[in-house]
Design a protein around this nucleic acid. Structure first.
Length: 584
RNA sequence: CGGGGAGUAGCGCAGUUGGCUAGCGCGCUUGCUUCGGGAGCAAGAGGCCGGCGGUUCGAAUCCGCCCUCCCCGACCA
């Protein structure tokens, strides 16, 4: 299948009875997240298998509207649309070095000629291949390409319906520049496009600095929308607006302040029995010491051998920060043998004093501590009253931990909040990663051969749909933002079979059609209650209720989904009133 | 991959000390009545009880293996 979704002109009007909107009265047992439930109940999607969904007509319309918004904003920034294959020769992935990086997430198969084909999880390789063959001169840059296309990733755990699926629709863009200044400009343009896109889709996206992960590159920003169904955690400052993903949010541990809390006297180091007790929680319980008065010693295996990392008991080690600090590629917890060699004791009882042949780095928050509990590097034993410098030495200090909600904002010192968020988009300054690996070079003005400077930019299209629902709903159903609502107006005739109602309904339906208003007509032979409830469930911004009761007075009702407001309107003024509402 | 939960009609569920023809609500079909917030009456259709194997006179129910789905974690746009 051509998995892309071409831009189309949406059909303006539709009769419910001739369409396909399978709404559900009851909550499907498989769905837990609000958006997931509502998407199934309102007939937007159906599941085929874990992480693979059918978009039903109403859902498809939303996707198409989102895509059209994306296209408009991308085109506005001079990005050029193209369409690349999902089937990609594995050689490209070896060339870029990402075959290993992606690992099991890559979905591959062998074709009949025994060639290994990758189902594209993203398209840096393909676009770089294209560009290296056709862009050879600085005169052809800057240029940014984009596509809207289905991606495939064998996610470990697909969840929350369409929010994390194995097959998903992504807008991916790639910029090519002759130098870093150029990249900065291209990046900025995409950044602006993204802000506009999310805003137009009714989402308040926060741009946060992020870890580049498997994409590579130095600078990257994620566009996050705060939501309980978010898989990511955000450190977010309510006062100054600072926001960063938990993985990189900076921790401020001011030495003078923390030092001040130090008691005057250092007590003598003492070994205590802690049989079989290894976790911070249990040790703390046994010794009646709070986690913040304990220090855990984590032995990591890094590129250049083992490293001991000291973290306060109530904090979590931040591997992204540790990696960055050590400038290493790989970082994993050391195994039992290595721990024994370095600490002399078994796993679970490691402490900073008496470590051999290992670099000791510590999180800055430890500087202010005294008389704390540590492992004794000996089976079933811990030390109490451990003290810095006296009992052990730290070779380097750094921010190595994960921020908590007890921390302060690194920018304004106010309290920081940890919130769940959904990642809607991610932009990366890739730099030379792919152009070097895959030799995408160009000749600059002075005739020199240089690698192209790249950026890449992704948006989860189906995720915008799910997130919009996640944000805009009530206990009755979805409340679509106007720009991405499947239809702008729903006409609800009460007893459509009755001639006077049908005539009035058909006339208005036709009138709205002529005015170019996207209208769905609920012409089903259902009771008023069912129609009202379904209307609230599928959440069109405006409904027009046409019933005998009002018709006798020459009046109809316009219901506003978001507010529940009912506007009594003269029959003749319906169209103008709706037009006014659409613009407002 | 670790931990937890679940698979019985399109949806939501009951039935599981082994026992009759597998049930209920919603939805669906037909007819009549109804018609401004999930209508009433009547008559229907719809099941390999997730799969395979075992125990047994007899299995939705007991045992074994497998599959699928959901949640938490690890991991990840």
């Amino acid at each position: 299948m051509g998995v892309g979704l071409p831009s189309i002109n949406l059909i303006n009007i539709m009769r419910w009875s001739k369409y396909f909107i399978p709404t559900l009265r009851e909550v499907p047992s498989e769905a837990e997240a609000v958006s997931h439930r509502l998407m199934i109940r309102s007939g937007l999607i159906r599941k085929l298998a874990s992480g693979a969904y059918t978009y039903l007509p109403l859902g498809l319309r939303v996707l198409q509207k989102v895509q059209n918004i994306i296209r408009e904003e991308m085109n506005k920034q001079d990005a050029i649309e193209l369409f690349m294959p999902s089937m990609q020769p594995v050689e490209l992935w070896h060339e870029s070095g990402r075959f290993k990086d992606f690992g099991e997430d890559l979905i591959t198969y062998k074709d009949r000629h025994n060639r290994v084909i990758v189902f594209g999880p993203t398209h840096e390789e393909v676009i770089t291949d294209l560009v290296r063959n056709h862009i050879n001169s600085y005169k052809q840059m800057p240029v940014t390409f984009y596509q809207i296309q289905t991606k495939f990733r064998d996610e470990v755990r697909p969840r929350f319906g369409v929010i994390r699926s194995r097959e998903f629709i992504m807008k991916d863009a790639y910029s090519f520049d002759e130098d870093w200044e150029g990249l900065d400009k291209s990046y900025q343009k995409m950044y602006e496009a993204y802000e506009n896109i999310f805003k137009r889709c009714g989402l308040k996206a926060i741009a946060v600095e992020a870890d580049s992960g498997v994409m590579g590159g130095d600078v990257s920003h994620e566009f996050m929308v705060v939501s309980d169904s978010g898989e990511d955690l955000l450190a977010h400052c309510q006062s100054c607006g600072y926001a960063a993903s938990l993985a990189i949010a900076e921790c401020i541990d001011k030495e003078p302040e923390t030092r001040a809390q130090k008691p005057e006297k250092e007590l003598p180091l003492k070994e205590v029995d802690t049989p079989g007790v290894t976790t911070i929680e249990k040790v703390g319980h046994l010794l009646k010491v709070k986690p913040e008065n304990m220090v855990k010693t984590l032995i990591y295996a890094a590129d250049e051998g083992p490293v001991a990392v000291l973290i306060r008991g109530d904090h979590d080690a931040n591997e992204a920060k540790i990696k960055k600090f050590l400038k290493c590629q790989k970082l994993e917890m050391a195994n039992e043998d290595v721990i024994k060699k370095i600490t002399g004791g078994p796993m679970g009882f490691s402490g900073p004093s008496g470590l051999k042949d290992v670099k000791v780095i510590a999180d800055s928050s430890i500087k202010g501590m005294s008389n704390f509990v540590t492992g004794a590097n000996k089976k079933d034993a811990h030390f109490i009253n451990t003290n810095l410098d006296r009992d052990f030495k730290v070779s380097e200090w750094a921010d190595l931990r994960v921020i908590t909600d007890k921390d302060q904002c690194p920018k304004c010192n106010k309290n920081i909040k940890i919130e769940h968020a959904i990642e809607m988009g991610h932009v990366f300054k890739l730099g030379l990663k792919y152009s070097k690996a895959m030799k995408a070079e160009f000749v600059d003005e002075s005739g020199k051969l240089k690698p192209i400077v790249m950026g890449c930019y992704g948006i989860g299209v189906n995720r915008i749909m799910a997130t919009a629902i996640e944000i805009h709903n009530d206990n009755k159903g979805i409340i679509w933002p106007l720009a991405i609502a499947p239809f702008q107006v729903l006409i609800i005739p009460i007893n459509y079979k009755e001639e006077s109602v049908r005539k009035a309904t058909d006339a208005i339906y036709e009138e709205l059609n002529k005015a170019g208003i996207e209208t769905l007509l609920d012409d089903r032979d259902e009771s008023a209650g069912i129609k009202f409830n379904d209307a609230e469930l599928i959440g069109m911004p405006f409904s027009i209720v046409i019933g005998d009761r009002g018709l006798k007075k020459g009046k109809l009702e316009i219901k506003i989904r978001a507010t529940g407001e009912i506007l009594e309107t003269k029959k003749e003024e319906i169209k103008d009133k709706i037009l006014a509402l659409l613009v407002a």
